[in-house]
Simulated scan of single mutants.
Amino acid sequence: MSVLILGLLIFLGIHSLRIFANDWRDRQVARLGAKRWKGLYALVSIVGFVLICWGFGLARQQPVLLYVPPLPLRHLNALFTLIAFVLFFAARVPHNRIKAKLHHPQVLAVKVWAFGHLLATGMLHDVVLFGAFLLWAIVLFAVSRRRDRQTGTTYPAGTLKGDVMTVLIGVVVWALFACWLHLWLIGVNPMS
């Protein structure tokens, strides 16, 4: 469990600089330059992510049951995950109304993904992983929306074409992940 927690601290820590140390972050970007900062940021993120994956795998070998979720919640998690995939791609597909309306759909995707998994799983390692991501996403979304209001940030209006592309890509990637990649990468078949 300690490797998982260390990975979460590193990964979520570097991704929390805009929350807790935005002025320091801005000074580092100015001092190092945008490319060097992004490279360092990516390196720290990768180290944290690898530790999360490794630590989660280790923690799964010594499971501690906290609660047994009802079976319908596992199936409901598939819906939450589908929504999370659409939100994730709303952050990337240009000219969609989802991003125009929600402003930070990727952070919302993390919230929905983590919440759904907390409903569907009951092991300690699941609660640590998904609970940490859910808490981080709640705080980051609130801070990001407040910063948008303070700076007067607006997002481009979306189009029907952007909406359709966002939903289509999200659904297709979700189906590939749910029906094949989740079992291959995680070892759990979410459709069973």
Rank of each mutant, 00 (worst) to 15 (best):
residue 4 L to R: 03
residue 6 L to A: 14
residue 7 G to P: 07
residue 10 I to R: 10
residue 10 I to A: 14
residue 12 L to D: 11
residue 13 G to S: 15
residue 13 G to A: 14
residue 15 H to K: 07
residue 22 N to Y: 13
residue 28 Q to M: 12
residue 28 Q to E: 15
residue 31 R to D: 08
residue 32 L to Y: 15
residue 34 A to P: 08
residue 47 V to T: 12
residue 48 G to T: 08
residue 49 F to N: 12
residue 53 C to L: 13
residue 56 F to Y: 15
residue 56 F to W: 12
residue 63 P to R: 01
residue 64 V to A: 02
residue 65 L to V: 06
residue 66 L to A: 06
residue 67 Y to E: 02
residue 74 R to C: 02
residue 78 A to T: 02
residue 79 L to M: 08
residue 80 F to C: 04
residue 82 L to C: 14
residue 84 A to N: 04
residue 84 A to W: 05
residue 85 F to N: 11
residue 86 V to F: 03
residue 86 V to P: 00
residue 87 L to T: 13
residue 87 L to G: 08
residue 90 A to H: 12
residue 93 V to Y: 02
residue 96 N to Y: 11
residue 98 I to E: 01
residue 98 I to F: 01
residue 101 K to D: 01
residue 104 H to Q: 02
residue 105 P to I: 15
residue 105 P to Q: 05
residue 106 Q to V: 07
residue 107 V to W: 00
residue 109 A to M: 13
residue 111 K to N: 13
residue 112 V to C: 00
residue 112 V to K: 11
residue 112 V to T: 07
residue 116 G to R: 09
residue 117 H to Y: 02
residue 119 L to A: 00
residue 121 T to V: 00
residue 124 L to Q: 00
residue 128 V to E: 04
residue 129 L to M: 11
residue 129 L to A: 09
residue 130 F to H: 07
residue 132 A to E: 09
residue 134 L to T: 01
residue 136 W to T: 09
residue 138 I to Q: 07
residue 141 F to M: 13
residue 145 R to L: 15
residue 146 R to M: 06
residue 148 D to Y: 10
residue 156 P to K: 00
residue 156 P to C: 04
residue 158 G to V: 07
residue 159 T to F: 00
residue 161 K to L: 04
residue 163 D to C: 06
residue 163 D to R: 13
residue 164 V to S: 08
residue 168 L to F: 14
residue 168 L to G: 06
residue 172 V to C: 03
residue 173 V to I: 10
residue 173 V to R: 05
residue 176 L to M: 10
residue 178 A to R: 04
residue 179 C to T: 12
residue 180 W to Y: 15
residue 186 I to V: 03
residue 187 G to Y: 15
residue 188 V to W: 01
residue 188 V to Q: 04
residue 189 N to Y: 09
residue 191 M to T: 08
residue 192 S to R: 14
residue 192 S to F: 09
